[in-house]
């Protein structure tokens, strides 16, 4: 991009033209530099996993690296002596799998109701879906926290999962997708004697596989990284998920900075691998909220 202001208008015609190939080279170079800048924090963090944790905390992440001090000690520690770390890891995997499956099932179910039927109160309820998309969870945390304490369900996974099974953004995305499924296909199912639910599971779900993939990725990422709500709800260390557990390591009392650094980076691994394998579903999922057309 050249940097002339818009007001330059017609005068821009008289500017000195760079040769066409140079435009491309300049742009490519700039993009490569930006790529490095963006990846730098993660790369430096990676290098820090080979360093002494207390040293890193004291000196900060740094470009100045003492090559002699690098060692594999932290990796040995991670796999042999990392206390509850892999417990948290397993908890995170369990919670992510269960919650993603539940969210996809319930949200697609609701979306189907909105997409193919006409019923009383449909408009009002759909406006409610759109409104929920615009209310940040941070505002709901206190009311939900009070509710959970009232019913005495703190420290359980069910409170983490249940309030979010009918997720507004996911419902919205599925509805848009289902609207595009031809009505003839559904009619054909009814002719064959399928129930309304049979039609959903046998005809609609198979057709909508890409939508399910995109939403699995989006929800999986959000839930894997979920921090605020579990932080409020979970009390016992054996139930912690990765973000909650890692956060407890950020205190000077535990003196567990090695695990904080290597554990943080290691917790990225599953998401990173999935991203490299299924990039296009990530893109579709992350931009799900945007209105189409």
């Amino acid at each position: 991009m050249s940097a002339e202001p818009m007001s330059a208008g017609r005068a821009t015609r008289t500017r000195i033209q760079l040769p066409y190939w140079l435009h491309g080279t300049v742009q490519t170079t700039l993009l490569l530099i930006l790529t490095l800048v963006v990846l730098a924090p993660l790369l430096i963090m990676f290098v820090a996993t080979f360093q002494d944790g207390n040293d890193v905390i004291r000196r900060g992440l740094s470009l100045k690296i003492d090559v002699d001090s690098l060692s594999l000690d932290n990796y040995v520690m991670l796999f042999t002596d990392s206390g509850p770390y892999f417990r948290w890891f397993a908890n995170s995997i369990f919670l992510t799998v269960v919650q993603v499956a539940g969210t996809l099932l319930v949200s697609s179910f609701v979306a189907y109701g909105f997409a193919v039927y006409d019923f009383k109160g449909k408009t009002a309820l759909f406006i409610a879906v759109l409104l929920l998309m615009a209310v940040p969870f941070e505002i709901m945390m206190l009311p939900l926290y009070v509710l959970v304490n009232d019913v005495g369900l703190a420290d359980s996974y069910s409170v983490i999962v249940l309030p979010f099974l009918a997720a507004a953004v996911t419902i919205f995305y599925f509805r848009q997708y289902f609207l595009g499924i031809p009505k003839d296909l559904l009619e054909a199912g009814r002719m064959d004697g399928a129930t309304e639910f049979g039609i959903f599971f046998k005809i609609v779900v198979p057709v909508a596989k890409p939508a399910f993939a995109a939403m699995a990725i989006l929800n999986g990422m959000i839930i894997w990284n979920n921090f605020l709500w579990p932080l409020l709800v979970l009390r016992s260390e054996s139930k912690f998920t990765l973000p909650i557990g890692l956060n407890t390591l950020l205190t000077p009392h535990e003196n567990n900075y090695e695990l904080l650094i290597i554990g943080s980076l290691f917790s990225l691994l599953p998401v990173l691998v999935l991203f490299l394998l299924f990039q296009r579903f990530f893109v579709a999922g992350m931009t799900a909220g945007a209105l189409k057309g």
Partner: peptide
């Protein structure tokens, strides 16, 4: 470039916060 720019969005606020606190 496009893929790399997206990678930070994969990090949790905990991990990103730790990295930036140290930077």
């Amino acid at each position: 470039f496009k893929a790399s720019m997206f990678v930070p969005a994969l990090t949790s606020v905990v991990v990103a916060g730790v990295i930036f606190r140290l930077m």
